Amino acid sequence: ENVVSAPMPGKVLRVLVRVGDRVRVGQGLLVLEAMKMENEIPSPRDGVVKRILVKEGEIVDTGQPKIELG
């Protein structure tokens, strides 16, 4: 899985990584606000952040790609 998608609709509060960052499985990639709760979205695997496809403040839909890992 190279693309991390939104598990639920919500607002991107914070992006916790930058392009080029090495990430580990379970590491937080971003914080999504859904139903007035903050949810940290974890990396599904070890890898390197290739692209960030969302911006802080953006509203995302379920299944929308957010971060691409290499």
Rank of each mutant, 00 (worst) to 15 (best):
V15K: 02
K66D: 07
P7M: 12
V12G: 00
M37A: 10
G26Q: 04
M37F: 09
R45C: 13
I41Q: 00
V54C: 08
E1A: 13
P42C: 14
M8H: 12
D21W: 10
D21L: 07
M37N: 09
V17D: 02
L16W: 02
E58M: 10
P44Y: 04
L69R: 02
K36G: 15
G28A: 15
D46V: 07
I52R: 01
I52T: 01
N39M: 15
P9Q: 11
R51E: 07
L69E: 02
E38D: 07
E68N: 04
R18G: 09
P7T: 13
K66I: 15
G47S: 05
R14P: 02
G20K: 04
I67A: 02
A6K: 04
R22T: 11
G70N: 11
R14H: 08
E1G: 13
G63T: 06
I41T: 03
G57D: 06
V31C: 05
R14W: 06
V12M: 00
E68A: 09
S5G: 08
Q64N: 06
V23E: 01
D21Y: 05
E38K: 10
R22L: 12
L69D: 01
G63M: 08
L16A: 01
S5P: 07
M8T: 09
E1V: 14
V49S: 00
R22S: 11
K11R: 12
D61V: 15
M37P: 03
A34K: 05
N39H: 15
I67F: 07
K50R: 12
I52E: 01
M8V: 08
M35Q: 12
V60G: 01
R51K: 12
P65Q: 06
R18A: 12
R45T: 10
V23T: 02
V4G: 04
P7E: 10
K50F: 11
E33W: 15
L53Y: 13
R22A: 11
E38I: 12
E1I: 15
V12C: 06
S43C: 09
L13A: 05
G28Y: 09
G26L: 04
V23N: 02
V19N: 04
G20Y: 05
G28M: 12
A6D: 04
V19F: 03
G57K: 03
V48R: 07
M35D: 14
D61Q: 14
L16H: 04
E56K: 09
M8S: 09
E38Q: 11
A6C: 13
N2G: 10
G63S: 07
L69K: 02
V17F: 00
V19K: 06
L69G: 01
G10W: 09
K50D: 06
V23Y: 03
E33T: 07
N39I: 15
